[in-house]
Structure formats: C-alpha cells, structure tokens
C-alpha cells in the first residue's frame, strides 16, 4: 500500500513516515498543498494523509479540488483544530475519516486500514483469497490454516495482489507499491520477492503473464 503524507511540520512528518513504514506502508511525504497536488497527479497512491493547516494551499482546498476532479482517492484528514465545525467541513469536503493531533501511530494505521477496507467494499478485516488469509493489522498470513512467515517486502507485494485480485500488475506497478521516494529500488527485487512468495505459498500461486506482469491464479 502506498500512501501520500501531506504534512508541513518536519518532526511530525518524519515520525509518521517512519512509523507507517514500520507498519508495512510505502510512504511519500510532501510539505505543502501544491506539492501534494503534483504528487497526486502521479496516480500511484492508495490513500492520502492530509493535514489541513498547510502552507501555499490549504488541505481543505486540496481535498475539494481533488473531489471536484472526480478522484475517489481515499483521504484521511489530520487536523490540529478539534472544533467540530472543522471536522465536519473536512468530512463534507470528501474526507473518509479524520484524526486529531496529537494522535497515536497505531490508531492512525488502524484507521488507514479501515478506510482502505471500506473503500474495497469489505467488512472483514482479514483479506481472504482461496486458502489464504492475510491480516493487514498484524501482518500475519495463514495458508490452509498454517501460519506462513513472510518478509515485510513479500507481505507488501502480497497485499498489492490481494487488493486487486484478478488484475495483472506490471513490475513497475508492483515497485510503486513497494517503495516510497526516498527508498532505493533494488534491481530484480520484484522477481526475488515473487520467487519467495511462490516458494512459501506454492509455485502456481502467482502466475506470470508474459510481457505484461503478474497475477494471482484463481482461488482454489
């Protein structure tokens, strides 16, 4: 899951990015509203964490113009003002949820997962695919009832597949889900992690679509 963090405070931004990366998200961080709009234009994000008090262009204005353009990018608003009117205007402008500063990292991650789950139309917090069960909160994977140990990158890759079951994902798309801007992309890594997943979940769990990318084989 790749998130866009829009936060002007250097300390909060650095901490949130670090914490969410530990929770398995790929996080990009921008400091102001204009940079946020530029980043959104890339279309690679699964969710935006938007602070309302931003320089250059306010968070609310960013959100409104985003929705005016017809984007349904999930947005979680972060605000320092806990006035009810502020929260209402944030939600009415098209936010999916909000957190008030100071907030808890675990709560933030839980809310992000809840928003993503609702957007995917799922009530069940567990992602299921055939015999596979994935818990996005605890990052635990069970296959046929047995716990499977996966590395963080393998988990991120699996999550990307489970998020859009049946879709063919290109190598570039998978890389986007794996790495934020400041993280260096190692060559051949997608292949390495696919190999790891196949080893642990069965060779034909992920199928290669030649010249296009990868997809999950149908649920058995």
């Amino acid at each position: 899951m790749r998130l866009l963090l829009v936060e002007d405070d250097p300390m909060i931004g650095a901490s949130v990015r670090k914490g969410l990366r530990q929770d398995g998200f790929a996080v990009d961080w921008v400091n102001d509203g204009e940079a946020a709009e530029l980043a959104i234009g890339q279309g690679v994000y699964d969710l935006m964490l938007l602070d309302l008090g931003l320089p250059k262009k306010s968070g609310l204005a960013v959100l409104k113009s985003l929705r005016a353009r017809g984007s349904d990018l999930p947005v979680l608003v972060v605000t320092a003002r806990d006035a009810v009117s502020e929260r209402i205007s944030g939600l009415d402008a098209g936010a999916d949820d909000y957190v008030v500063k100071p907030f808890d990292l675990d709560e933030l991650a839980a809310r992000i997962r809840a928003v993503l789950r609702r957007r995917a139309g799922r009530g069940d917090p567990l992602l299921r695919y055939g015999k596979l069960e994935f818990n996005p909160a605890s990052r635990e994977v069970r296959f046929d009832g047995a716990a499977v140990s996966l590395s963080a990158r393998e988990l991120a890759l699996l999550e990307a597949f489970l998020d859009r079951p049946g879709a063919v994902l290109s190598r570039a798309q998978l890389e986007e889900k794996l790495y934020g801007w400041t993280q260096e992309v190692e060559s051949n890594t997608v292949e390495v992690y696919i190999h790891g997943l196949r080893k642990k979940l069965g060779a034909d769990f992920i199928r290669n679509v030649r010249g296009v990318g990868y997809m999950l084989s149908g649920p058995q």
């Binding site: 405070d9 300390m11 901490s15 500063k101 675990d106």
Partner: peptide
C-alpha cells in the same frame, strides 16, 4: 498541539 503531537509520535517510535 503540533509539538505535542510530534512528541507523542517520537515517543511511540522509541517504544517500537
């Protein structure tokens, strides 16, 4: 609020 929010996050990162 802003420095307090940062402190809370930084503290959690110490714990993690």
């Amino acid at each position: 609020r802003t420095p307090l929010a940062a402190l809370k996050l930084q503290m959690q990162l110490v714990g993690r």
